[in-house]
Structure formats: structure tokens, C-alpha cells
């Protein structure tokens, strides 16, 4: 696995509004050589994104002037309180809603609607209940016109990646929540997105399963180096998984801080005991509480 990144264990904080670096603070690990289906390179950029909902009670400003970016192979998390517009942000990036102002580009192309270059994992398990696990994973490829043989091979590969080969013939209703989410992840990976968007994918899981899934997700990312933009309200999860974290404020949602997480990429649960890990967590918690944080100010 890609643990040989040799990053300096120094907390670096990128402030809001700082020109987003085209050169990353840390070099991204090259695509893992053992992946038979390498994920494409990409550059997601979000510029001055604003979203206002017009409700009966009047307009609700969900997101206000959001600027952020994700690069190839990065694992980026967005944390924020409930109602800070996290889901709204992800739906905009996925093209499922349209922004009030601003734009998002993927490799320079403006997002105008949903597409397979931005795969989405929802919190509610969205497997097709009438399809077997295998067919679910194949479905994205089928939609894209991939032939049955290639489809089967790729689906089998990704089912193996998520460790569910044995359940290929099962129906979704025969799986547990964590297994369903792994199938959804395999399905998204198989349809070769440039970036995987995840909206609180483990929010509905119990503590143990959640921890297993987080470890799984980190290992998966280390193996495939697929670019990930993940929403969570669990700060611990964000620090454990990501390399960069955007912290949102609520009402309206704005980016309060960009935090670089300089921890080794092959983390295990024991890292939660490390001082550095706890500093990140407490620092971000303080930000969410509305305090300026000594732990994160460098």
C-alpha cells in the first residue's frame, strides 16, 4: 500500500480565500501500478458557488460564495454542522441541482448536469432491489454501453476489491447496511468516475461497522487512488480519512477553513491515539464550535 509518502508531520493551515494552489502542498502518489483499471486524472474546481432555495418562508441561502478544488487522487472531506449546506454542495457538484451563482468545472468543463464522471454514493442505500449484487455493479457499465463480457469482468474485479465476491448472486435485501454500501461503492468505481462523491456514506451505520468501513475506505483509496470528495459531520472520520478538510460554517454555508491533514496515508485505528490526530480533531471541533483554535493556528 502507499504508505511511503514521507510527509512532514507539521500542521499546515490554508486560510480561506488563499489562492487555491494549482501545485498541491503535497505530491499525490502516482496511480497504484497493480490497479488494472486506473482511474483517470482530473481537476475539480468550484468557483464562487452560491445556492439559494426559494421556499414559502422566503429565500434560504444554503451556500454562499464557496471556492474549493479537488485534484487527482486526493481524498478531501467537507465537515460542517447540520444545515450547513453539505448535501446541497455535493448535489451541485453531482449536477443534480443547479447553482444560483458561480460554477463548477471538471477538467475545465462546466458542470451542467449529472454524468458518470462524477459518481455519487448516497447515505440511503440506493441499490436496485431487483438486481443481484453482480448486476448492480454492472449496471453503470451497461448504461454506458459496455458489452456484457467486459462488464462482467470489471464488475467481478470491483466486487473482489470490496470483498463481496461471495455475494455476487445475492439480492440487496439479503445484505447488511455496510455490505450494501460496499456494493454501491463497487458499482460507482466500476463505472470509472473521475471523482467519487460521497454524502455521509456511513452515517446510518453502527459504531463498529462504521469503523470497519472507514478502514476499508482508506485501504480502498490507497489501492485505487480514486479521487474522493466526501461529506461528513463526523470530524473524527474526516481526520482519519482525508488529506484535506474543508470546514463549513452554517447559515449560510461558507468555507471557514481549509485544513491539510499531514498524517501518514496508511493509517489504522491506532492513529486515533496519536497526539497529532487529536490536535486535528480538537482543532476542527473548536472551529465548528465557533472558537478560534490554538491547536490549528500555526
Amino acid at each position: 500500500m502507499g504508505g511511503e509518502l514521507g510527509r512532514p508531520l507539521v500542521c499546515r493551515i490554508g486560510l480561506v480565500g488563499s489562492a487555491h494552489p494549482t501545485v498541491l502542498a503535497h505530491p499525490i502518489h502516482p496511480l497504484h501500478p497493480s490497479t488494472p483499471y486506473p482511474h483517470p486524472t482530473m481537476h475539480l474546481e468550484i468557483n464562487n458557488l452560491t445556492k439559494q432555495f426559494d421556499t414559502r418562508q422566503g429565500p434560504v441561502l444554503a451556500l454562499d460564495d464557496i471556492n474549493m478544488h479537488v485534484e487527482t487522487g486526493e481524498f478531501v472531506c467537507v465537515v460542517g454542522a447540520s444545515g450547513s449546506g453539505k448535501s446541497t454542495l455535493l448535489r451541485l457538484v453531482a449536477g443534480l441541482d443547479m447553482p444560483t451563482a458561480g460554477e463548477m468545472t471538471v477538467d475545465g468543463q462546466v458542470v451542467t448536469g449529472p454524468g458518470s464522471d462524477r459518481g455519487m454514493i448516497f447515505q440511503s442505500y440506493t441499490l436496485y432491489p431487483w438486481m443481484s449484487v453482480q448486476k448492480n455493479v454492472e449496471f453503470g457499465l451497461k448504461l454506458q454501453g459496455v458489452g456484457p463480457r467486459e462488464r462482467r469482468e470489471m464488475a467481478s474485479y470491483y466486487l473482489n476489491v470490496v470483498g463481496l465476491t461471495k455475494f455476487a448472486r445475492s439480492l440487496p435485501k439479503q445484505l447488511s447496511g455496510g455490505m450494501k454500501q460496499r456494493v454501491a461503492i463497487a458499482r460507482t468505481l466500476a463505472s470509472r468516475p473521475k471523482i467519487m462523491l460521497m454524502d455521509e456514506p456511513f452515517g446510518a451505520l453502527d459504531v463498529q461497522t462504521k469503523e470497519t468501513m472507514q478502514q476499508f475506505m482508506l485501504d480502498l483509496w490507497n489501492r485505487t487512488r480514486v479521487s474522493i470528495l466526501m461529506i461528513t459531520h463526523d470530524v473524527d472520520e474526516a481526520v482519519f480519512l482525508s488529506q484535506r478538510i474543508y470546514v463549513l460554517t452554517a447559515h449560510p454555508g461558507t468555507i471557514q477553513r481549509e485544513v491539510f491533514v499531514n498524517l501518514p496515508s496508511d493509517r489504522t485505528y491506532t492513529i486515533r491515539r496519536d497526539r497529532a490526530f487529536q490536535d486535528y480533531r480538537e482543532g476542527i471541533m473548536d472551529l465548528l464550535r465557533g472558537k478560534t483554535t490554538p491547536a490549528l493556528v500555526s
Binding site: 443534480l96 454524468g115 455519487m120 440511503s124 448504461l143 463505472s191
Partner: peptide, 12 residues
């Protein structure tokens, strides 16, 4: 969400 999943998988 099932329809939106379909769109993000590349479905028309």
C-alpha cells in the same frame, strides 16, 4: 435517489 443514482452512473 434511485433515479439520481442512475444519472450519476451515466444513465439517460
Amino acid at each position: 435517489a434511485l433515479l439520481e443514482t442512475t444519472y450519476t452512473l451515466g444513465g439517460q
